[in-house]
Design a protein around this nucleic acid. Structure first.
Lengths: 128, 128
DNA sequence: CACGATTAGCGAATTCTTTCGCTAAACCTG
DNA sequence: CAGGTTTAGCGAAAGAATTCGCTAATCGTG
């Protein structure tokens, strides 16, 4: 009678990873400063979340310095890839194409964005 | 000291919505048959989840017939759109373009898929 | 209509997520 | 090095997600 831990980082975990990705390896104080600028939270909570994330292997900790320095143990690209795969699987019946087409139709892209994407596609088409 | 309810449908909720989207309005028995073919679960659990989803407004129930018939109260397209927006915001710093480009690079698309997407882009570019 | 089968639902249990109070350890600074 | 400040960590609390046992209501059939 239970619920398996989500394979994806949770909400707060993602916010903390976001800080680490943007700022690079940082002590708790710094992480917390950035985190509390986007969400109301307590220093203790940040410490605790980092310890949970450490257990999950989402971050690493350098204890040889004081204060300890945390760094992301997963890359932004890797996390994006996993999340994307997850959404495609859960909501797009496995079709990345559907997702891409909906993203293009829905989230209005600029002329430049479209051109850039088109060039990528042309390149991919050429590779085949 | 809490966690706000996720604004997105949860895992199981999504699986149930998937059944309703595929099968159309159905009684619990049918929903459960499909659900249990993709995940080990108990009939009671399906009933309960549907009642939770009813409270959240994710499904509607027609009690005028017996057995009751459930239907999705959110469309697949709408749920996809919300989920996409969520991922873009949480992991792509709000840039749908990044997401699209990564989806294209990562999830290998077929020649046909790429061509189809390219045509969409060309059409979108033309509209501007 | 009595009786077994199906359907509906409540309430509790369990795990995950997120929160923070309180304590202890480590660190300045006068 | 004493006293205040900062850093680290534990453990409990509370809500969310998911599960199912057990009971009640409804249905179909002989």
């Amino acid at each position: 009678m239970a619920r398996p831990a989500s394979e994806q980082p949770t909400n707060v975990e993602l916010q903390i990873l976001g800080v680490l990705w943007d700022e690079g390896p940082s002590p708790v104080r710094t992480i917390h400063r950035h985190l509390s600028s986007i969400k109301q939270t307590n220093y203790s909570t940040t410490v605790k979340m980092l310890s949970v994330m450490l257990d999950k292997g989402l971050v690493r900790r350098d204890e040889s310095v004081r204060p300890h320095v945390y760094r992301a143990a997963v890359t932004r690209a890797g996390a994006q890839k996993r999340a994307l795969k997850d959404v495609v699987q859960k909501l797009y019946e496995g079709s990345a194409k559907s997702l891409v087409m909906q993203a293009l139709s829905t989230q209005k892209a600029s002329k430049e964005d479209l051109a850039e994407i088109r060039r990528l596609i042309e390149r991919l088409e050429g590779d085949q």
